[in-house]
Design a binder for these strands. Structure first.
Lengths: 258, 258
DNA sequence: AAATTAAGTTCCAAATAATGGAACGTGAGA
DNA sequence: TCTCACGTTCCATTATTTGGAACTTAATTT
């Protein structure tokens, strides 16, 4: 998930930040000590620095939680993200056309990070999905993104994956995944056949920015009982169309400068 | 806004992260060089480290933008934040009762960071507000939060403020602000009389967690033409009630452990 | 096209910060 | 009161960062 260096001052601190943000609940000093391979004195100072910077917070019980400064950073990066800004209107349009939830995600390391989500009427918790990192091998957006990679990069990435079986249909080996990705590269669209979450299907299309800073995809997602494979196949075309419009938008936006 | 140390390896890197995330547009190396007080060689290596860790991203044009890894960190800290989790149902209830937008914010340094926002029916961009840092001296939540501080802490904080006049009614000096905060401390609720944004009013009440990790407030916000001061005064009671329930919820949640 | 300037990158001895083992509080429970 | 587990502080050693300068590459001008 995280491509942390683990060396250098920053690298070591990021490992700790990862540790704390990935925990289900705030961690006490000793909990962190057990998981981080650091001497007590060192760990203590490292945590203090992170707290001083607002990246971690230490509550009255001596438990470390992620710092709210991270929220401020994130709110800013999200609000100004060029890819997201360009994609936004096209995502809404696609949502209108299908009535289902639309996602925009990009590949970072081995994960898909969701950059945006457009739902129907109901005011659903956005943060719950936006910013979340999901595996690339069992999501529509993820597989669509992988189909964009040059063969060598793809091989390297696949080699580093460890396959967790979320459902019965989750890919369990690099071989079957590679085969499907070849197919996706030809077709130009991908499905998620309940591979990440039982009862949830999606159809996705690859999207990228011209400078290849963003390699990702968009998808239309919904419950299997409502979204037959038949219907998803029909939606492949509008999804690809929306993807094409986003790429054109990025071309226009980046073009004049180069 | 940022209480960065500016010394130590991490401190210097955070200054850069602040610089890039605060910029309106991705910055080129030279732009950053001009603003950061660092020699070229040093700056180059620092930026490289941030990019390696995914905290910054370098696009094809050599422009640095905030890294998407920040989103992942933030999504996690938000999803698991105890204060927010406890407050959530009470915010929704308050939204139902008033029909207007409800906010939850906490004090971090001199800023209020919005932890949650509950709007009416329409699916509004949440991220646009959640995580955002706003000044404490011209928001209802901010002034409510300040009214909770011990006198000495408050004096120190006020001394460090620089007052930007967003509207004609924005406080422009520590003296008038301090006077209003004394009043708020007595009353137990605060108003924002179009001090941050023209045409926007709110009524807020202070909220804090027992261990004082979270010092903040909740507010009901809306357009001035719809929310007379008269109406806001009526809402002060339900807002204070919701605040009381949140604090009780935190007491129960934290209590058993200590 | 050559010359000039600007932009970005790499290098390495010197300066600085991080390390980690051990000693030192501190508070809860026996 | 004693003990033990949990945190915190200290400081000589070690590793990383620093920053000036040299170098490469790209853009602009003559």
């Amino acid at each position: 998930m995280s491509q942390t260096r683990e060396t250098g001052t920053l690298g070591k601190l990021m490992v700790l930040l990862d540790l704390v943000t990935h925990a289900d609940t705030p961690l006490r000093f000793t909990d962190i000590l057990a998981r981080a391979r650091q001497p007590r004195g060192t760990l203590h100072r490292q945590l203090s620095h992170l707290v001083e910077e607002g990246l971690l917070e230490l509550d009255g019980d001596g438990r470390y939680a992620p710092g709210l400064r991270l929220l401020d950073f994130a709110a800013r990066s999200w609000a100004r993200n060029e890819f997201r800004l360009v994609a936004e209107p096209h995502l809404s349009e696609l949502q209108q056309a299908t009535g289902e939830t639309v996602h925009l995600g990009v590949l970072r390391g081995q994960s898909i990070i969701y950059l945006d989500k457009v739902e129907g009427r109901q005011p659903v918790r956005m943060y719950s999905q936006i910013g979340n990192a999901s595996p690339c091998y069992c999501t529509g957006v993820g597989k669509a993104a992988l189909s964009l990679l040059p063969p060598e990069t793809l091989v390297d990435l696949l080699a580093g994956l460890s396959f967790t079986s979320f459902t019965a249909s989750t890919h369990a080996s690099a071989e079957t995944l590679a085969a499907e990705i070849r197919e996706i590269a030809e077709q130009g669209y991908a499905f998620d056949r309940e591979e990440h979450e039982a009862g949830i299907r999606c159809v996705a299309a690859p999207v990228w920015s011209e400078d290849r800073t963003f390699i990702g995809g968009i998808s239309v997602t919904g419950p299997a009982y409502r979204l037959s494979m038949e219907l998803l196949r029909q939606w492949a075309v509008p999804v690809q169309l929306a993807a094409a419009r986003i790429m054109e938008g990025m071309r226009v936006r980046l073009g004049p400068r180069r």
